[in-house]
Design a protein around this nucleic acid. Structure first.
Lengths: 301, 301
DNA sequence: CGAATAGTGTCTGTGAGACATTATCGT
DNA sequence: ACGATAATGTCTCACAGACACTATTCG
């Protein structure tokens, strides 16, 4: 290419004189929200296990946010794709690998980190609890699963102003760890404004205990995405073993959406997404359930 | 906070000795895909105007990609939120302001830019064609709207391997400008792989004319998002004036989704999203149409 | 009047929600 | 037998798609 720019430079000359360090740059990190569904054994032998949504967090062992719990993640190397950085950091900090990542959102507020400007691209992954064994790595003292509970503190309120409508709500995210009997919490003020023909959702952290940076916001964002994608994709099948009963699958849906489903309706809804097998789940004190598998041809519709 | 880390430093001491320039950082840019719907006057006085989806592009006047067309955007300042950078660059380069942005995706491939590692967060905005008047700014020789056409070059093909299913397709994006009779094109190889229970969509640029960097991929991504959001949100109303006829709205839906709608069905589908007014659209050589407005209470469902 | 679009009514099949009913285990 | 879950059938109502039909304008 022999085109020259306004300074009379060819592309080659331009690239040789270009100095990318002229301006200060934000740092870029990649974070991974690893979700799973865990089973809580029921004492009554007849009843099925209870399912809970859990998130993997690490306890930071360095400043900033030392001894706070955080979403695993870290800096993106200069010659490394963002998703690779996410996987690498996840492996380094929690020993988890071979998961499928989906990019969520890039958080770029100016004061997210006290050290410097840090922009963070968040990814989400869903895994079957049985398949992996997280273990603390370099930058983390501890790694553990936390059950997520979302409690509405101030119920939804709608206000109408001259030029917009606003719906607000205050929510408390609780992250519970039974094993070490520990609770992390984060209170969020959520506002949905209708400006013109667009809904702008903003989330502010009002109060926070032992959770790093703006990770409460990120968790909230991820849970919303999870809930939405549940309805029109096959993501739920990531949270269930190869063979599963329809009741298990139904519970996964219920735990994530927060809505109860009727067995008959649920079965109808997901009938095209699953394939019946000959295997059975026995020894449960009640009628055994057929095991199903994901129908991999479903998404071709 | 008096907690010390493994080197015995308090948070204050840690922050004072922290040097964020130890590692090289990627550069961060923010790009804006500005979509609109344009009307093409019909020569037959009886027929309605034809609607076309258009995208705003700028012609670069410096390396790299000099004289190529590109999505407007630029570097994020160190103390500036990403969305603010997107708005600022849009204003600087195209003189467009007061639009509502939605974050799309962050593109972080390693070789996107020949100068250095550049990570780019893409935003999308939808505007009413009548409301704004783009005009070339600092970094751009020219600014113009391009009609988007998507032509399937190699039709969808499905292949089944041992451990995954792959659906591939080759598509040619054409960006047409009538005024200067100019066509930009970009041929994309699109693959959708079902790996485990996750669909991984990858897009590769096979061939490209006069389009900068990986902007063809970004446009493809945005169009998909647009198509999806059309079905379950109110975004279409951004592309239509305050008062509009249902036929106009229907055309917007059709142009974006690529699917024809039956008037009766369409009216039923969007009936709760619009409010009838007393105004009429006349002088069209056929029965006048009622004008409608967006029902701002719709999203409260 | 003719061409074009606007707008409504009707029919029919599908599908979702509610409910009831039957099946089958372990103790 | 009892308690629990599994699995299916039935009824109804709402709605989506297809189609036909009427209404209204400009030239």
């Amino acid at each position: 290419m022999t085109i020259v720019n306004e300074q009379g430079l060819t592309e080659k000359e331009f690239l040789e004189q270009y100095d990318s360090s002229k301006y200060p740059k934000p740092s870029l990190t990649a974070d991974v929200l690893l979700f799973t569904i865990d089973s809580i054994k029921n004492t009554n032998y007849k009843k099925n296990d209870k399912k809970v949504l859990k998130l993997l967090l690490i306890k930071r062992k360095n400043h900033p946010f030392i001894q706070h719990w955080a979403i695993p993640g870290g800096f993106v190397d200069i010659d490394e794709p963002i998703d690779m950085a996410a996987l690498r950091e996840l492996k380094e900090e929690t020993n988890v690998e071979d998961v499928y990542l989906e990019q969520l959102y890039t958080f770029g507020q100016v004061n997210r980190d006290p050290r410097m400007r840090v922009v963070s691209t968040a990814y989400m992954a869903l895994v079957d609890r049985e398949k992996l064994n997280p273990r603390a790595g370099d930058d983390a003292q501890e790694v553990d699963w936390f059950a997520i509970e979302r409690e509405v503190v101030v119920p939804e309120k709608m206000m109408e102003y001259d030029d917009f409508i606003e719906k607000t709500q205050t929510v408390k995210l609780k992250l519970l760890n039974d094993a070490i009997d520990y609770e992390i919490s984060c209170t969020l003020f959520i506002s949905e404004k209708l400006l013109g023909r667009n809904i702008k959702r903003t989330v502010e952290i009002i109060d926070q205990e032992c959770l790093a940076a703006d990770h409460g916001k990120i968790i909230d964002y991820a849970m919303n995405r999870l809930k939405n994608k549940l309805e029109y994709t096959q993501i739920a099948f990531n949270l269930v073993p190869e063979y599963f009963t329809l009741s298990e699958l139904q519970q996964v849906y219920q735990v994530i959406s927060g809505k109860e489903e009727k067995p008959a309706g649920f079965r109808r809804k997901i009938k095209d997404m699953v394939i019946e097998t000959d295997h059975m789940q026995n020894s449960k004190g009640h009628r055994p359930a057929k095991l199903f598998t994901y129908n991999k041809y479903w998404h071709l519709k």
